[in-house]
């Protein structure tokens, strides 16, 4: 299975807002810790190591812009 690149979330704006809301009142360090937990939870949910590695590579490449 390849990394899904089209929007799969049925309510993109709502889920985006939920992510931002989850960070409300946190310091940057706490936010980073929250993100780490979130990445681990979602990575486990995805399960497929190939897909996760592809996502990691894309995220890393996008940082250079």
């Amino acid at each position: 299975m390849a990394l899904e690149r089209e929007l799969k979330i049925d309510d993109g704006d709502g889920v985006y807002a939920a992510i931002i809301d989850a960070h409300q009142g946190l310091s940057l360090e706490q936010s980073a810790a929250l993100n780490a937990r979130l990445v681990l939870l979602l990575a486990n949910h995805i399960g497929d190591g190939t897909v996760i590695r592809e996502a990691l590579a894309k995220a890393r490449a996008s940082l250079t812009r």
């Binding site: 899904e4 690149r5 089209e6 929007l7 799969k8 979330i9 993109g12 704006d13 985006y16 894309k58 995220a59 996008s62 940082l63 812009r65």
Partner: peptide, 13 residues
């Protein structure tokens, strides 16, 4: 915004 340059899903966000 950065991901939107290459990833279609991000454009929708």
């Amino acid at each position: 915004l950065a991901l939107a340059e290459t990833e279609p899903f991000a454009r929708r966000l």
